[in-house]
Amino acid sequence: MKIRNREEAQATQLNMTSMIDIVFLLLIFFVMTFKIVELEGDFSVRMPLAGNDSVAMDSTELPLKLRMRADELGRLTSISLNEIDLGQDFDQLRGNVISLIGTSTPIEGDDGPEIEIDTDYNLRYEYVIRAITAVSGYKDGNEVVKLIEKIKFAKPRR
């Protein structure tokens, strides 16, 4: 009976151990450094120092005044737009903004309506962003309809 030479068959097999070691090291490195990227965007606001801006002074239209009140923990207690109390409802705020400025044609650039946000000092920033979201536009399907682009802050309340 003929026995095949075993040496030959084994010589063709590569030793995989070191490669697998490196591959797993790489894998662990990438897994550890992996971080899900959160998409971020900006609300661009042009806010020159009050008093320097002659354009704002010329404007005959007074800015809408948005007042936001907070409790001692920084939670929102009430919103009012031009002294109209809106409770805590951001949708109602958006509705009021739409009825005040109209939706006929969105005005872009420096001629658009302006809003001044006056918040309590300790109000959480999140609520300010929600208010800015409510007044700056709304989503109609995938399209963003713009409302107010000029936003400024009143003096911080201490």
Partner: peptide, 29 residues
């Protein structure tokens, strides 16, 4: 998101005082 809004306003005020005027409030989508 839980910072006091007043602190952010103070930061904006300081930036305005050195004549910076373009601000971008960054938020998560």
């Amino acid at each position: 998101k839980d910072t006091a809004a007043g602190d952010v306003q103070e930061v904006i005020r300081v930036a305005q005082e050195v004549n910076l005027e373009n601000f971008a409030l960054r938020v998560k989508e």
